Structure formats: structure tokens, C-alpha cells
Amino acid sequence: MNPANRENDDAARAAGSRLVQDFGLLIKAATRLEQRIDTALRRECEVSHTMFEVLIRLCRRHPDEEISQRRLADDLTLTSSGITRLIDRMEGAGLVRRGPAPGDRRSVLVEATDHGRAVFLRAAAVHAQVVERYFVAPVSRADYARLTHALGEIDKALRDT
């Protein structure tokens, strides 16, 4: 057999492996679920899924906790310019406000406005409905418990290494 043909056959087998297919299924399902959530949030609350993620972090903070724009960027794996543009849009929509960090002129703090908290509560209900319909309802209660346990174990393994 020609070495190039053997490499092509090996590549085709690798691409068709169960591990590649299973991971692809996970990514496809997660992407489709995220798209459903984003569409519902935009339609019903006029925020993107990423904006909702920012509001989650801002609305669940402790009263004395300060959240910087940099921390939000790290949490959401956004670049500095990406989080700046996102917070600009959210500030323009009245969802958040920025302020200087006491003692650190380079740091910018972000907090949810009253309007942002109200939008967050509506968006949380919409998010829950979509997750219930497409993530919880399609599987049995026992399968759901195993799935969420397994996802937690995967997340733990990724954090530990």
C-alpha cells in the first residue's frame, strides 16, 4: 500500500473513532442549546446569552464584593477589547454601570443597575424554560442525574490538571 494512502486511511479511521464522534456530539448539543438560549433571551429580554452571563456574575455577588471588568473578561474567556465592547453595549442599554476601583486607577469596576437586575430576573426565567425543555426533559430523571454528575467530574478533572 502506498504510504500516502495508508495515512489517508489512518486519518479517516481516527476521524471516525468513537471518541471523536462522542465529543463532536457533546459540542454539537452544547452549541445548539446555547443558540436556543441566545435566541430566546434576545427575543424575550433583548440581551444576548453572553450579556446574561455577565448579569449572572454581577447579580450573585456578595454585597461587599467588587467585580472588575478584567475579572469578567477572565470568567467569560473574553479579550480585554471584547469585554470592553460588551460592557459598552450593556452600559448603553442601562444594564450595568462602571466605576473606578478605589486604590487602583487601572481597574474598572462593574455593577448591575436596578434595570439590569430586573432584566436578569426575566432572563433567568427564560433561560430556565429553555434548559428545562431541551436539556432536562429529553432524558429520564436518572439519566439527568448521571449526566450532571459526569459533567461535574469532567469539569473537576479539567480544573485539577
Rank of each mutant, 00 (worst) to 15 (best):
T31V: 11
V136L: 15
A128Q: 11
S17Q: 08
R61L: 08
F135G: 13
A124M: 13
L78Q: 08
M1V: 15
A14D: 05
P102M: 05
G92A: 15
F120Y: 14
L33C: 07
L76S: 01
A125N: 15
V108H: 00
R97S: 03
D143Y: 09
T161M: 06
I87Q: 00
V139G: 00
R133S: 12
L109W: 10
Q129A: 07
D104V: 00
R133K: 09
L158F: 03
R57P: 02
V131Y: 03
T77R: 04
L151D: 08
G152A: 02
A14S: 09
R117D: 11
L33F: 10
R42M: 12
A14L: 14
G92F: 15
R117F: 03
D64V: 09
L109C: 08
T77F: 09
L76R: 04
L76T: 03
R97M: 05
D64P: 00
V119T: 13
L151G: 02
G116E: 05
E34H: 05
A145C: 14
F120H: 08
L19F: 02
L147S: 15
F120S: 05
F52S: 10
R13F: 07
M1A: 15
K28T: 05
R60I: 14
S80G: 12
G92T: 07
A14P: 02
A137P: 07
H115E: 09
D155T: 03
R89W: 09
V119R: 04
V131I: 13
M90Y: 01
I154L: 12
L95C: 14
R85T: 09
D74T: 08
I67K: 15
A29W: 06
D38M: 06
L25R: 07
N2Q: 14
G152F: 00
M90T: 01
D143H: 11
F135D: 11
T31C: 05
V110M: 06
S17L: 02
R13H: 10
D9W: 10
T31N: 05
A118D: 11
G94E: 06
S48G: 14
L86P: 02
I27V: 11
V47E: 08
R18Y: 00
V20D: 01
R43P: 04
A11W: 04
R60G: 14
Q129K: 15
A15P: 04
I27N: 00
D114P: 13
F120N: 11
V108E: 08
T161W: 07
M1G: 15
T161L: 09
P100N: 06
R159P: 01
F120R: 03
R117M: 07
L19E: 13
V136A: 14
R98F: 04
V108I: 05
R117N: 04
R141C: 14
E53P: 01
L58N: 00
A15K: 02
T161H: 05
G94S: 06
G16A: 10
R98L: 01
L72C: 01
M51I: 09
A125T: 14
F135Y: 15
R159I: 05
R97T: 08
P102S: 13
R70H: 02
A4Y: 15
I83S: 08
G94I: 05
